[in-house]
Amino acid sequence: MKAKSLLKSLVILSLLVSSVLANDSTNLTKASAKVQSIINKFKLEIVDYNYTKAKIGKGTHNSAKAILVDARPNKKYKVGTIPSAINIPDTDYKEFVNQLKDTAKNKEIIVFCGGWNCGKSPKVANMLKKDGFTNVKLYQAGEPEWSKRNYKEVHLVVTKAAQANNSAVLIDARPYKMFLAETIAGAISIPDTKVEELKGRFPIHQNEKIIVFCGGYKCAKSHKVANKLISMGYRDVNVFAGGLPKWKKAGLSTTKSAGEATSKKASAKPMISENGAKLGLDEGSIDGEWLNGFIKENKVPDFIQIVDVTDPSEFKNGHIKGAINIPAEKLSAKQLYAKLPKGKTIVFNCTAGGRSIEAWTKLKEAKFDVSEIFYFDANVDCKGTKCKIEVNEALGI
């Protein structure tokens, strides 16, 4: 009997381990059927987190051993990307690919986007192959996996917003003498050579947002401090790779310029559309928290129509209650506009905000009236009509 009980326990344990492995985001078998078919069609090689991590070197743009390409929309790239990555959105490929004009065709390139179900990375990888690049790979787990396991690189607009709103701890990783001479107002000094000595200055709470910077894109000091923070268990660590030089070039205030900052907080006065929708700080956005409040209560105002722009298969798996499905990616601006309900305030949504931003941008650039058309910048995970929604932080851009 004991032998049978032991055997039964081992079987159960084996099933539990298998279940954990099957749901491990680092397991290279998690692409949706649709995305996997694209990967197979273009004959693309997938690499994992550890492979990608080894290729970023010290994290600086000049130390990376491969070129990392973020295929997401430019706004998503600015909010946070893998260190050293450049941005080539699938929808603006011709405009952004010029960044590689002087790159050898056999240089290793690793393309990523918004995770296993994101089709943007295989599309961009295929475009690069068509342009003659011969060593193109996919890190298909992409930014979602990376951001859970490591620090991200953020753009000037993120650092600027964090400083203006006091929403992150800014850390200057340069030598203390340089910090005293000039730094970003509000930053604290933790030189990379003094981390052990000064680690008591790090935030108590490990979920605190931290942005580390130093002397620009070739400076590795901020990356060293960021790696130390990750090793200590901090979960929202970011590097502003442009550093103090980028900040000054943008004309923003430093401790040396003594209050001459051109950075200004967005007006606290709420912006309301003609129909009564509360607008977000970013151009074209709905106020995410305002809309999410109605969604949670299942009381979205009658004048608002949420339009889910994802593929029908994604919409079928789950969507916000009351939303309609208009897959926008393959439609022209004219076709998309024609399908929109008339007399309503339209709010585009998708799973992570990228495709909804692209749908809105497509209409705006085509000169359609978008005065009552907006996008919902949020991470939306729905099973049926039960949704977990995390609103993305507005950047005021």
Rank of each mutant, 00 (worst) to 15 (best):
Y51M: 01
Y49C: 02
H319M: 03
S32F: 04
P175K: 15
K269L: 13
D308W: 00
P73Q: 12
T159E: 10
T81K: 12
G284R: 12
F315I: 02
M271E: 14
V20S: 09
L229C: 07
R201E: 13
K152A: 02
S167A: 13
L13T: 11
Y151K: 01
H223K: 00
G57M: 10
Y139T: 02
S25L: 13
T26G: 10
N392W: 07
V79M: 15
Y77W: 15
N150F: 09
W290I: 04
K321S: 08
T29H: 13
L279G: 08
Y217C: 02
N117K: 08
V158R: 01
L279V: 08
K30H: 14
K383D: 12
D381P: 01
A66I: 04
K58N: 09
D282V: 06
I38T: 11
A161M: 11
G276D: 10
S356V: 01
A168L: 08
E95Q: 15
D302F: 11
K264I: 13
L6R: 13
A64M: 08
K65C: 02
E393Q: 15
S253T: 12
V154N: 02
K344V: 03
T29P: 00
D302K: 14
N126Y: 12
A3H: 05
L15T: 03
E260I: 09
E196V: 07
P327R: 13
D70Q: 08
C219E: 01
S263W: 11
N117F: 08
Y77F: 15
V239E: 01
S9Q: 11
N227F: 04
L44R: 10
V111D: 02
A173H: 07
I272P: 01
A141P: 00
A22V: 10
A187T: 06
K107Y: 05
L279M: 13
K41G: 07
L336W: 04
I324M: 07
A277L: 14
D311F: 10
K107S: 13
K383Q: 13
L198H: 04
Q140G: 05
L279T: 06
K344Q: 11
H155G: 00
G242R: 05
K330L: 10
E208W: 01
K344W: 08
Y93Q: 09
R72H: 07
S253K: 09
L100F: 10
G284E: 14
V35E: 08
L279C: 07
K8R: 14
M232I: 01
T60D: 08
T81P: 05
T29D: 12
S189I: 01
N117C: 03
Y217T: 09
L156D: 06
D381Y: 11
G280L: 09
N150H: 14
L279E: 07
V391G: 06
G80H: 12
I12D: 06
A220G: 05
N238S: 13
L363E: 07
V347D: 02
E365Y: 07
K199Q: 14
V47E: 11
P301E: 11
P73C: 11
A3M: 05
T26L: 12
F213D: 03
S167F: 06
I295R: 05
Y139H: 08
K364C: 04
K53N: 06
P144K: 14
G200S: 14
F368W: 06
L281V: 03
T310Q: 11
V157K: 12
C118T: 01
F240Q: 04
S167H: 05
Q99N: 12
S147I: 05
Y51E: 12
V124F: 07
N40D: 15
A352Q: 10
I304G: 03
K278M: 15
